[in-house]
Design a protein around this nucleic acid. Structure first.
Length: 173
DNA sequence: ACGATGATGAAC
DNA sequence: TTCATCATCGTA
């Protein structure tokens, strides 16, 4: 299991290290592993695309909390989106999981993995039934590319920042 | 290109 | 309490 300490550092530093490793589910005793192929960084109070740019509210409280916890919210009233909170401590940032294995798209993967608000503010560990694992060693590096984030055109200059990370060949659009 | 569908934050 | 907005997706 990837320990919470892995997430206790700047989000832009974590993203390249997380690609290629695994998101793991345990549902009804059955364990499944999915390679992480596409993610996005949401980086702090000044990032207009980050929900925490609205400040500390009931919804964003988890972003200010412990690194390594899940942040799950309902998007467009339709899809649950899965994020993991990153550090540093008291700095509101997170990584959106956009593509895993065959499932491309942040709303599709949560539907397939039965992820909803039950996971919000829960730790990413085996007790929760949703966690990360290193594919080989924690220092394994995988080739990746970047692009602007998807669906955040409203965020001004922040919309153009290359905060989307994806493994080569796994670009979903 | 557009509608579904509901939580959220801000205004009133 | 009302209103605009929104880290998407399937159908057309």
């Amino acid at each position: 299991m990837i320990p919470s300490s892995f997430f206790k550092r700047p989000v832009l530093e974590i993203c390249p290290d997380l690609l290629g490793h695994f998101l793991v589910t345990e549902i009804d005793g059955k364990i499944e592993r999915f390679e992480i192929t596409e993610i996005e960084a949401y980086d702090g109070p000044k990032d207009l695309a980050c929900h925490a740019s609205k400040g500390r509210t009931a919804r964003t409280e988890v972003l200010f909390g412990d690194p390594g916890q899940w942040y799950v919210y309902l998007c467009y009233g339709v899809h649950w989106l899965l994020n993991v909170v990153t550090g540093p401590v008291d700095y509101p940032a997170a990584i959106l999981i956009r593509g895993i294995g065959e499932w491309m798209g942040p709303g599709i993967l949560t539907r397939e993995l039965k992820i909803d608000r039950r996971f919000n503010a829960q730790p990413a560990d085996t007790a929760t039934g949703l966690w990360f694992e290193f594919s080989d060693s924690r220092n394994q590096k995988y080739a990746f590319q970047t692009s602007p984030r998807i669906g955040v055109d409203y965020a001004g200059e922040w919309a153009a920042k290359p905060y989307r990370f994806f493994k080569a060949g796994y670009r979903s659009n």
